[in-house]
Amino acid sequence: MSIKLENVNYIYEDGTINRFRALKDINLEVNDGEFVGLIGHTGSGKSTLIQHFNGLVKPTEGVVSYNGEDIFGEKYNRKNLRLEVGLVFQYPEHQLFEAEVLQDVAFGPRNQGLSEKEALIKAKEALALVGIGENYYNKSPFELSGGEKRKVAIAGILAMEPKILILDEPTAGLDPKGRDNILELLKRIHGERKITVILVSHSMEDIAKYVDRMIVMNKGSIMYDDSPKKIFRYHKELEEIGLAAPQITYLMQRLKESGYDVDENATTIEEALKGLNINA
């Protein structure tokens, strides 16, 4: 079970003056059960990239395959693919449309061809998973708080029981509490449902804390694809493309440069506590 991109190129509005090469020779494989962070500044191509994963966008050149099959092959059922590869867009709460929370979440399962009863069961399971209780089922999505709306929207994708879950900046616009809530939720789902999670984020601190593998995009190409710890060593290069390593990385490197015996590769607070080699 994997998504594989081979020599993928994508060109916007080919043949016009607006022609823009959004993806350049992308080669990438995401394996089962990975928790991947995808990072890059606005316009780096990461949004275009994730739309290739579920066939919403067709590459101008190259092959995208899922479980070994070319998803743009003649007989390939892309509608099914979209149910297996769930994509949560930015500000997903803006796509809620039903009058009641439960009905909205059941939209996906219904499109999967499930019976009304089954669709509602799936919707209830998904809501339980994101921590939205029964008392919310019949509420209008528009009465909820920002964080709750977002959870409902994510449940809308989870109800389809995707094997791969892709989220485009799921914490944008939320406050710290809302952000931690969503990230903890993703970590739990990743563990419980054993699904692949691809997280697009701007926050290096979040990436460092949650993901095993990190992909850095710049100008349509993959710049780094490695563990966060290894990538943060290139913090100078990251800065050049408008990104930065977590503050902890800078601190540990400064301490090392000042001649102290610390672990300069620590990237999270937990690691730093160990790596500082200081005792009461």
Partner: peptide, 20 residues
């Protein structure tokens, strides 16, 4: 209250909690 602090501030706080 549910707010963040800069990472260095938090690290210093954690160290203090450990008696440093």
């Amino acid at each position: 209250i549910g707010l963040d602090v800069p990472q260095v501030t938090e690290l210093a706080y954690e160290l203090r909690k450990r008696g440093i």
